[in-house]
Amino acid sequence: MKVIVVGAGIIGASIAWHLSQRGAEVVVIDGGAAGASSQSFGWINASFYADAAHHRLRVAGIAAYGRLMAVQPDLAVQMSGALWWEEQGTALQKMKADLAALGYPVAHLSHREAQALEPDVRGLPSDILQFPDEGAADAGAVAAALLTASGAQVVSGVQVLGIAQNAGTVCGVETTVGRIEAPRVVVAAGTGSPDVLSSVAVKLPMLVRPGVFVTTKPVAVKIAHVLVTPHGEVRQLPDGRILASAVANHQGDNATDVTERPEDIAARVLRWLDPMVAGATLDWDRVALAYRPMPADGLPVIGAAGPTGLHIAVMHSGVTLAAIAGEAVAAEVLGQGAEYHALLAPYRPDRFQ
């Protein structure tokens, strides 16, 4: 079966790869604009969640990465764990208790224990939570690798104007260079998805959620984990650069505008980041802004909608959920995937129709 995937970010690429593994003929349409995947912090986690069902989905996402990496071991993914001290006192104790009640692996570390894990990090507090199952991905690199491995035909620099249909059934997409035909279409175009879906009167309300990240120049010191601090999330890239979120709790941040100048953002981040890193003086290399593809209720949108043959996969965090979304959407597009129905039930597009 021929399937068109609209979007070449980490979600679209994962869907394309899983479709190809199931024998589908895949065409991926990449509009060419920089998306959230190329500007993502890349944290893979289930310690951030909206409710128990959302936590189960995110845990399933981590497990799906294990299955994906078993057959694609060279993906730019490091499941090195996370250290969390965003809050202290009763808030930390509640975080630990809530996650333990959900059966999620969590360890309560002392300052000494955490320092042994991260000897080049200064200012560690007396209480830290460790999430050993978490990690991080270079989302842009993972997307590119999966897209290549999928063997999909890729159409780049072409805008999808809408969904083509005949008698209530998908027959392809309309683009700036004409119609591309297929009996199945998956819209995984992030913040661009609502415009594509509006052509068939499918509603996908989205929040405006910018994310800003600062990358330093390479340093010789080593940070082994994702660090979740009161100021923002931090991790080190394989080339020695340090990547930091410009806001605390960036996954839960509700800001809709970025009003600071880039150099002011970098200076503000370095004021708290530089003292944290022992044995190095940090200088910023890059400030990046991206708009997170977040549906109006903050939860993923995954499943069929509109004319027969149309499927949607739009979500934040796309990095955490890319592997499970790829598995589930590919199966459902091809008329399979009953094992995913309960997991995905809260996230169907019909809640917005």
Score class of each variant (00 low, 15 high):
Ala322Arg: 05
Ala91Pro: 01
Ala136Cys: 10
Thr320Asn: 07
Pro183Met: 01
Asp120Gly: 08
Gly172His: 04
Ala76Val: 03
Phe131Asp: 10
Asp120Ile: 09
Ile62Gly: 09
Val3Gly: 02
Trp284Val: 00
Asp195Leu: 13
Ile223His: 03
Asp257Ala: 14
Asp74Leu: 14
Glu327Ile: 09
Gln78Met: 14
Phe131Trp: 10
Ala220Thr: 10
Thr216His: 10
Arg56Gln: 14
Asp257Gln: 14
Ile163Gly: 01
Ala188Lys: 02
Asp133Pro: 06
Leu146Tyr: 03
Asp297Val: 02
Asp239Asn: 15
Asp264Asn: 11
Asp350Asn: 14
Lys96Trp: 06
Leu334Tyr: 06
Glu86Gly: 15
Arg235Pro: 06
Ile4Leu: 05
Thr148Cys: 04
Val329Asn: 12
Arg122Gln: 14
Asp285Ala: 11
Thr176Gln: 05
Trp272Cys: 00
Ala141Tyr: 03
Gly252Cys: 04
Ala136Pro: 05
Gly172Gln: 08
Pro346Arg: 03
Pro275Glu: 03
Pro349Lys: 00
Ile4Glu: 06
Asp239Gly: 09
Met276Leu: 12
Tyr104Phe: 14
Pro73Thr: 07
Gln93Lys: 09
Ala116Tyr: 05
Val221Ala: 15
Arg292Thr: 02
Met1Gln: 13
Gly190Ser: 03
Asp120Pro: 04
Thr148Ile: 02
Gly103Cys: 01
Gly335Asp: 09
Gln251Val: 01
Asp285Gly: 08
Asp133Ile: 14
Ser20His: 05
Gly81Gln: 06
Leu83Glu: 09
Ala288Gly: 11
Val160Cys: 05
Leu197Cys: 01
Asp127Cys: 03
Val3Glu: 00
Pro194Gly: 02
Val214Ile: 02
Met1Ala: 12
Thr191Met: 12
Ala76Ser: 15
Asn45His: 10
Phe352Gly: 04
Arg292Tyr: 06
Pro275Gln: 05
Pro194Arg: 01
Tyr104Gly: 02
Gly337Gln: 09
Met276Gln: 02
Ala305Asn: 08
Leu289Trp: 00
Gly9Val: 06
Ala64Gly: 05
Ala305Phe: 08
Thr90Phe: 03
Gly211Tyr: 01
Pro119Tyr: 02
Val121Met: 02
Ala141Thr: 05
Tyr49Val: 00
Gly32Ile: 09
Arg261His: 15
Asp120Tyr: 11
Arg292Ser: 02
Gly232Tyr: 07
Pro73Arg: 09
